[in-house]
Structures are given as structure tokens and as C-alpha cells.
């Protein structure tokens, strides 16, 4: 009782107090983390993260839309003119400069995530009767973004080109997305 207020004792108390708060914070955080992490994709959701598509039936000038991770993926078998138009485009005029070569694995097939990079609508242009916009590729009806034959943004509010999903050709006409 006599040395209650010595500096040593005060240091000891400070240390105990700080370490108690620190340990308490670690404990609270480790309890809060499962509460937050349970909202992340579950194991079964992650297991559904790849899709295989057979392109055998997809004729030149046709397009199909498949679902991957709950989102539409556009696959278009481009015509020679469309390929030429996409390749000839100079990078100078582009908002998000990318050559067509950077955006395809096989120049016949363009594979895109069909979600406008502005605010997430699905652009038109997959069906033959759709409005395709001023550059002949895709046109987003929500806020008027125009995409070209390579899915690059040319006009309108979208900041970047249509996203290219991760995919690979398992054979000439079989692709695996994801």
C-alpha cells in the first residue's frame, strides 16, 4: 500500500490497461469478421464460377449470350468487315485505348462481359434487329453509350471498354469462360 503511486506502478498500470484494450479490440474484431465475411460469396457460389460454351453452331454474323456468374457474356462471330473495321481504328480517338488484338484470342470471336461499364445495364446489339449504336457494335439504352465492333467505348458516359472475361479455347470451337 505504501508505494501505490510510484512511477513504476503507474507504468505497470498503463501497460495493463493498454494491453487489455488491445486484446479486447482483437477479440471484438475476430468476432465481427465472421459476421461480415458470411456475406461474401459462399463456397458453392464460387464453385459455379466457370461456364463452357460450344461455338460450332455460331455462324458468321451471329451472336449468343451466355450466363457466367449471373452476368450475361456476349460472344459474337464477327464478319470480315467487322474485323477489318475494328482493326483499322486508330488508337488516338479512343477513350480507353486498346488495339483489337489485345481484346481477342481468335479474331473471329469477340467475347465480352455484356455489362455497360457506366452503371451496369445490358447493352443492345446481340439480336439482328437491335439498335447497335453509331459504331455498329453495341448500344446501351440506359444512358446512351456506344461501343464498336471490338466492344470499345466510343461515345457516351461509360468510362472504359466492355470488360473481357477470363476465358480460354479448349478446342477451335469450345471455350471455357472463367
Amino acid at each position: 500500500m505504501t508505494n501505490k503511486n510510484t512511477p513504476d506502478d503507474k507504468n505497470k498500470r498503463d501497460f495493463l490497461q493498454v494491453s487489455t484494450y488491445a486484446l479486447g479490440a482483437v477479440g471484438a474484431a475476430s468476432f465481427v469478421w465472421p459476421l461480415i465475411n458470411q456475406m461474401n460469396p459462399a463456397a458453392d457460389t464460387l464453385a459455379l464460377a466457370s461456364t463452357e460454351v460450344d461455338l460450332e453452331q455460331l455462324e458468321e454474323g451471329q451472336a449468343i449470350t451466355v450466363t457466367w456468374r449471373g452476368k450475361p457474356v456476349f460472344i459474337r462471330h464477327r464478319t470480315k468487315e467487322e474485323i477489318a473495321s475494328a482493326k483499322d481504328q486508330l488508337l488516338d480517338g479512343l477513350r480507353d485505348p486498346q488495339t483489337d488484338e489485345e481484346r481477342v484470342q481468335n479474331e473471329k470471336y469477340i467475347v465480352l462481359v455484356g455489362v455497360c461499364t457506366h452503371l451496369g445495364c445490358v447493352p443492345l446489339g446481340q439480336k439482328s434487329g437491335d439498335v447497335k449504336g453509331e459504331y455498329g457494335g453495341w448500344f446501351c439504352p440506359c444512358h446512351g453509350s456506344h461501343y464498336d465492333h471490338s466492344g470499345r467505348i466510343r461515345k457516351g458516359p461509360a468510362p472504359t471498354n466492355l470488360e473481357i472475361p477470363q476465358y480460354s479455347f479448349l478446342s477451335d470451337t469450345l471455350i471455357k469462360i472463367g
Binding site: 465472421p34 459476421l35 465475411n37 458470411q38 459462399a42 463456397a43 458453392d44
Partner: peptide
């Protein structure tokens, strides 16, 4: 119990 992150714990 099996798939949700930390679901078993919760």
C-alpha cells in the same frame, strides 16, 4: 454449415 463463410461458427 458447409458453404457459407464461417456459417458453421455462426
Amino acid at each position: 454449415m458447409r458453404d457459407v463463410n464461417h456459417g458453421w461458427l455462426l
